[in-house]
Amino acid sequence: MTQVSVVNLWKEFEGQVVIERVNLEVAPHSFISIVGPSGCGKSTFLRMLLSQEAPTRGAIRIDGKSLPAEPTEQRGVVFQRYSVFPHLTVLENVAFGLEVAASRLLGRLFGARRRAAFEGCRGILEEVGLDAARDKYPAQLSGGMQQRLAIAQALIKKPKVLLLDEPFGALDPGIRNDIHQLMLRLFDETGMTVFMVTHDLREAFKLGTRLIAFDRYRTRPEERELYGATVTFDIPLDRATAGERRQAMDEIAPRVSASADL
């Protein structure tokens, strides 16, 4: 079980404050939906969780340990695009994580060990519904299938934390619904903690066990550089009923401006 804590996190780019004073205690097995208008720093926050960027001040800890300075196997990720390797087939994409762990020098397996590793990937492929497409290249898959592949590829490493950066934003509504069901099932089965950045407020409420909204609280032009965005809403959803979720969503929608059109 994974405990994530964020302590007084600040991020500045060239003197401009992007994020300030973010404090979060995340319970094990949480699904955190992160919403907010464009440019509010929610993607920056995710990149810091990934160690793709370093905080200017403050710290992020997983199970009490500070984050390493670079991306590691501890935290899996699914991006909106370019998440899978175009030169590998579906099966090879999923087996990638296993192969690099088993063969330090060549990063790939041969013969019986290769067959065993690839066989071990069939289960997760079955789960995300891609087993029939296992020998195809990503360019031959639809957008939804590519994202399911990216999820399977990340999950094969059993990460403690899974980071999703608007992973379903480019998908059609019907496909998005299917992939939501898949995501919820995988979340229940794995016991990992998920952080998902999204533009879609409905998606945030549907998947999350907790919702946090980032926003700037000072918006006058002369203040924009000096004050960054911070957590403006923090709503627990895990024990909320459908009606309570609906109410919370109606309340928050007009105040998270990028999602106001929903």
Partner: peptide
Amino acid sequence: PREQLIKAQTLGASSWQ
């Protein structure tokens, strides 16, 4: 795409790999 290099790192690949 940077995403690919990041993804490979989260899958445990070293620089050489």
